[in-house]
């Protein structure tokens, strides 16, 4: 006996259609969906926009001018008041003073209303030991130690008349992920209760980065005594403590 297709029972077509639709659908585990969120970093020095042609003073009266300032922002998370977390996937961003575009991140996160923003300054240890990376972690970007495998988490270079190094330069390449030299720092920014980050609604989150804290944060760093720090561990850890204090939430711009 032959079965003609128009004689097949109705449920064949329903099941078939469901399978057809589901087989090509992207995996969407969250039912709430995702939206993009703009996060802007404003780089400042003592509250004023950082200017590479200006000379600044640190705590001990040392003068300095900045040529290069960049750092990794990674593993961005948003947390609700009841501690539910949305994580950005492949969350690695290089924020660079010299590149305005790099200071405006567009994150894709789960919809929701959030009271805390978290990120890591640096690159997690796994990515430091997993071979060649790409995107923001491309070694081409000059943030990778080629002779001692690992990422430079933050870079600050410039000049100071008080520097005892060649051509009065100061050079800080701070990184390190191993025990005893861990320069990764978690940054937690609480969001005011009346201005939560609302995915899909919030226009922009503005974060201030105050470079003055690099020298004058949890520890006092003197350019004259430490003009060059370019290896993990040691005094680099003091700067890591300092750069952890650079960030403040400036604004959540809701419509």
């Amino acid at each position: 006996m032959r079965t003609r297709f128009w004689k097949l029972p109705w449920y064949f077509f329903i099941v078939g259609t469901m399978i057809f639709l589901s087989s090509c659908q992207k995996d969407s585990s969250d039912e709430t969906g995702t939206s993009s969120l703009k996060v802007t970093f404003r780089i400042l020095n003592n509250g004023e926009p950082l200017n590479t042609s200006e000379t600044y003073l640190n705590f001990s009266g040392e003068q300095y001018r900045v040529d290069v300032f960049k750092f990794y922002v990674s593993n961005v998370k948003l947390r609700t008041s009841d501690n539910r977390v949305s994580e950005e996937k492949e969350s690695y961003h290089l924020v660079d003073l010299a590149n305005a575009e790099s200071r405006e991140l567009t994150l894709t996160m789960n919809n929701g209303s959030y009271q805390q923003l978290e990120f890591t300054l640096g690159v997690d240890s796994l990515r430091n030991v997993s071979g060649a990376q790409t995107g923001a972690l491309d070694p081409m970007l000059g943030m990778f130690w080629t002779w001692n495998s690992g990422y430079i988490f933050a870079k600050l270079e410039g000049q100071s008349p008080q520097s005892t190094a060649l051509q009065q330069n100061f050079t800080y390449h701070i990184g390190g992920f191993r025990n005893g030299e861990n320069a990764l720092r978690k940054i937690l920014l609480n969001i005011p209760a009346d201005k939560p980050i609302q995915l899909g609604k919030t226009d922009m989150v503005v974060i201030d980065v105050d470079l003055a804290r690099w020298f004058d944060g949890a520890h006092k760093i003197s350019i004259a005594t430490a003009p060059s720090l370019m290896t993990p561990g040691g005094q680099s850890l003091l700067i890591a403590d300092n750069y952890a204090t650079m960030f403040t939430l400036a604004n959540v711009i809701n419509p």
């Binding site: 997993s130 060649a132 990778f144 080629t146 001692n148 495998s149």
Partner: peptide, 29 residues
Amino acid sequence: FHWDGGINHLEVQPLAPITAPNEMAETVE
């Protein structure tokens, strides 16, 4: 890799000689 073990993965080893000024002296870019 290397006499001092500074390189932790075969994939990233070539970056050292490529960029060393006294070896291949080139930039990755």
